[in-house]
């Protein structure tokens, strides 16, 4: 049963991605990418990552769609039509094939004896109860065990905000010209 839900959702995800990328109208494409994020969030719930699903639903389907729509109101609404590019398609397929070969070496999906589950994760799960006393293991790992990491991520978000404010937050040169010229008019 779990497999069917999982497989259906992830196939759905691929279909939405194809539909989004085939769109010539950018508005439709952005809305489909919002739907893509929402289905991805559902899939994260199925894969037991509730915190990640929460974030993806709020960020991917919410904020990033809003930002994309704001951008769309300033750029042309349609993409320039062009045919399928051969070289990038071959490159993408080759990368996919290479990864498929690599994936066949990965442990089976859901296997409890995979190396990833036997190194530090049990320590985190036991420690979260005994040393930190926080039932949500994700929170205790995020804020305590990997506190340095999260500090770095917060600083990245901070830096990105400063960068956006520097790029589009201020006035353009054209604006200052207009205000100067109107001031001249008043003086004259």
């Amino acid at each position: 049963m779990g497999f069917i839900i999982d497989a259906t959702l992830i196939a759905f995800l691929a279909l939405i991605a194809i539909a989004a990328l085939r769109r010539k109208q950018l508005f439709g494409m952005v809305m489909l990418s919002g739907a893509f994020s929402l289905v991805a969030a559902t899939l994260f719930v199925v894969l037991d990552a509730v915190d990640v699903a929460f974030t993806e639903a709020a960020v991917g389907a919410g904020i990033s769609t809003v930002l994309a729509l704001a951008t769309l109101s300033l750029v042309p609404a349609e993409e320039k039509p062009h045919s399928i590019a051969i070289v990038p398609a071959v490159l993408a397929l080759a990368t996919g094939l290479l990864l498929s070969v690599a994936v066949s070496d990965l442990p089976e999906f859901g296997a409890a004896d995979a190396p990833i589950h036997n190194h530090v994760a049990p320590e985190f799960i036991i420690g979260s109860e005994e040393k930190i006393g926080v039932p949500n293991v994700v929170t205790s790992v995020l804020a305590s065990y990997r506190g340095y990491d999260t500090l770095g991520e917060t600083v990245v978000v901070f830096t990105a905000a400063i960068a956006v404010l520097l790029i589009i937050g201020g006035w353009t040169r054209r604006e200052t010209e207009i205000t100067e010229s109107t001031e001249d008019d008043h003086a004259g």
């Binding site: 509730v50 915190d51 699903a53 926080v134 949500n136 929170t139």
Partner: peptide, 8 residues
């Protein structure tokens, strides 16, 4: 409530 359930 992020300590006890999903969130943060």
């Amino acid at each position: 409530h992020g300590d006890y359930g999903p969130g943060g």
